[in-house]
């Protein structure tokens, strides 16, 4: 992060101290629900649902053990989440890199239109395409398959990926391409040997952002999967009707599903802003 402009530099003092305390209070308040979930994950099912919330208790790892036990249903869903999130990111990169490369370095009359068209598909609400996708998937046997879900995630993230990778490619000086051109390197050769290494940090942050988005996605997972290809999001959503039951188990499962993403998200804050605002705010 760059050094921020400090609006209040000349006016610290008591007001400044109060504002600082307010900032701490807000931070704790925002984080509190997550802290409470973390705490519940270490409780037994009995202490998790008590009329007086237990702040001090003997922590137990039972819920975590149960979730991570070999061959547990939890592991099945976690594996599905991993396969669909990482798989859709990889397929997305394979589709994105050539497209963004072509648009960034060999633009023609229709490039602007193509790019804006691609971005605009992101604004089609998922429900707008839900019914045909469900029916087509059903007749093709793609319902409840990891492949079917993975392709939906790729489509969902492709506009963001193209836009981000395009913007990273545009930051690369054009002279480099022209030099490679004069040296007689082909388009593909230039892309793979010259441009990809230069854009690697940008590609990595793009991949990180869309992996997070795919991991957290729940709409499609709830709609087109049942058990075989369900992700953690769909599995956790299935707890929605358990009134006062399995809170510890739900919390432990949620902590495992959320913690890695929160950590990755913290690392990728800046790229997330850039990606989600389509480069409007960097």
């Amino acid at each position: 992060m760059s050094t921020p402009v400090d609006i209040d530099q000349s006016r610290q003092g008591l007001g400044g101290v109060l504002l600082t305390l307010l900032a701490y209070a807000v931070a704790l308040l925002m984080f509190f629900p997550l802290f409470w979930m973390l705490l519940t994950a270490f409780k037994t099912e009995q202490t998790a649902v008590s009329l007086v919330p237990q702040l001090f208790f003997t922590p137990t790892l039972d819920s975590f053990r149960e979730a991570m036990a070999q061959g547990s249903t939890y592991n099945h869903y976690a594996w599905n989440s991993l396969v669909t999130a990482v798989g859709s990111t990889l397929i997305g990169l394979v589709l994105t890199i050539p497209a963004a490369y072509a648009m960034a370095f060999y633009p023609n009359k229709r490039t602007d239109f193509t790019l804006v068209w691609m971005v605009s598909t992101k604004f089609i609400p998922a429900v707008g395409v839900l019914i045909p996708i469900f029916l087509v998937y059903r007749s093709l046997g793609l319902l409840d398959t990891r492949f079917g879900l993975l392709m939906l995630y790729t489509a969902m993230n492709l506009p963001i990926m193209v836009w981000m990778v395009y913007s990273y490619f545009r930051d690369i000086p054009k002279d480099i391409i022209e030099a490679a051109d004069i040296d007689g390197a082909g388009v593909l050769q230039t892309m793979v040997r010259v441009i990809l290494p230069l854009a690697l940090p940008g590609l990595a942050s793009t991949a990180l952002l869309v992996t997070i988005l795919a991991w957290n996605e729940s709409f499609w997972s709830i709609m087109v999967t049942n058990h075989e290809a369900s992700t953690l999001a769909a599995f956790i959503a299935s707890f929605r009707s358990a009134e006062g039951l399995y809170w510890a188990k739900l919390s432990a499962g949620s902590v495992l599903a959320v913690a890695p993403i929160v950590v990755l998200g913290w690392c990728a804050q800046r790229q997330m802003v850039r990606g989600l605002t389509f480069g409007a705010v960097k």
């Binding site: 925002m30 991991w215 993403i261 929160v262």
Partner: peptide, 13 residues
């Protein structure tokens, strides 16, 4: 960091 954490949590959770 604590304040922005909720954004990274999946909506179902």
């Amino acid at each position: 960091t604590l304040a922005v954490a909720p954004f990274f949590v999946m909506p179902v959770v």
